[in-house]
Design a protein around this nucleic acid. Sequence first.
DNA 1: GTCCGTCTCCCCCGTACGGGGGGAGACCCG
DNA 2: CGGGTCTCCCCCCGTACGGGGGAGACGGAC
Lengths: 220, 220
Amino acid sequence: MPLTILLVDDEPLVRAGLRAVLEAQPDIEVVGEAADGAAVIPLVRRLRPDVVAMDVRMPLMDGIEATRAVLRTVPDPPKIVVVTTFENDECVYGALRAGADGFLLKRARPAEIVHAMRLVAEGDSLLFPAAVRQLAASYGEDYGNAEARAAMERAALTQREEEVLRLMTRGLSNAEIADRLVVGTETVKSHVSSVLAKLGARDRTQAVITAYESGFVSPG
Amino acid sequence: MPLTILLVDDEPLVRAGLRAVLEAQPDIEVVGEAADGAAVIPLVRRLRPDVVAMDVRMPLMDGIEATRAVLRTVPDPPKIVVVTTFENDECVYGALRAGADGFLLKRARPAEIVHAMRLVAEGDSLLFPAAVRQLAASYGEDYGNAEARAAMERAALTQREEEVLRLMTRGLSNAEIADRLVVGTETVKSHVSSVLAKLGARDRTQAVITAYESGFVSPG
DNA sequence: GTCCGTCTCCCCCGTACGGGGGGAGACCCG
DNA sequence: CGGGTCTCCCCCCGTACGGGGGAGACGGAC
């Protein structure tokens, strides 16, 4: 039986290209296409492809959400290969974390694309060699959401404010932070207020989110 | 001039082993050793090694903190190779994010270790091939803080609760969530309350933190 | 049929939170 | 010296938040 593949990409041109490349192989069959992540789950359920080639950047639901959704909701889910244009696309990382089995550059040569699909279908996770270095490099840059990182930089928090923010990201209340820093709660409140103002956050939750998104603190 | 290396590992045996392997090479010189991350910065400043071989798990200051510290405080910092025992060591990921240039398994063959040091010194980031797959697999497992992940699993949130939590992690208020889900704010409050109860969180901020730490949502 | 879980909505109530002010001492730097 | 920044403290005040408790509707499980 052939290797069945579902293509998910908002650009018809890309889908056509992938289809052409893949269907040139006698043992590979493109069983369906979707233009957005939102449409993926029912298609996967119905078509039960071996592999989903998933674009990361799509209008309604991006590849990361879609990957997560498929893996959570579909029993015995297909392998998922994330397809992207840029080697250092920050989304790739999120997709891998969401459970993608590999990723692939759009500019890869046809033979490489075919090879990647076969490898993944066989259960091999892969990180495309040319991109591994870029991926590693992006780690070095202290990965994070670009806007959030910009917000953190613009913020230019003082030492004390950074300290307070860090404690906020541990889930401490103002009173607890005051206790920890051996200052009054009113002092903490004033620090918190300037942190919120500088980060453009409405409340401490948004500030903590920005801290995570910017890489100011990292999960784990 | 030789390739200079600083060894950082809490186990003398491991340091001895690395030293033996590396110094067998005529062009490699181990210029120093440290037993803990806390001692690294002054040593790096004084010895100015080309590469630091850094254990991830150490008593006082772990390899992640140490890596971050070195890269932040030392001008023109050395390359840092993270050394670990386990392929799926969760710390590895954090170290890479902290700016490590590569990682290496302790069980690697001597030739591989030497090769890795040379590669990194030449400016090549590397992810050791045998470990790449493991790393990718660990992505699939949805990397995150173990306790937080356990908390998320124990929580067993309903579909709606997950949805609400996801919107909380976008920084939305109860009213905004209600608006988004087209339900009443009281409904949202009730969902939020059960999310907090299930996650053992005191407030929405702590819930969002757990969500990030567990990998329920990922920065980026 | 009954039971249970989920989703929905409602009430009251206390408080931690956050906004908006003002003010004071310490420090560095031009 | 004055200006700026950082730090800390205090006030009032409104409200979003979270706890507690209750309840109807739907669905699936038994």
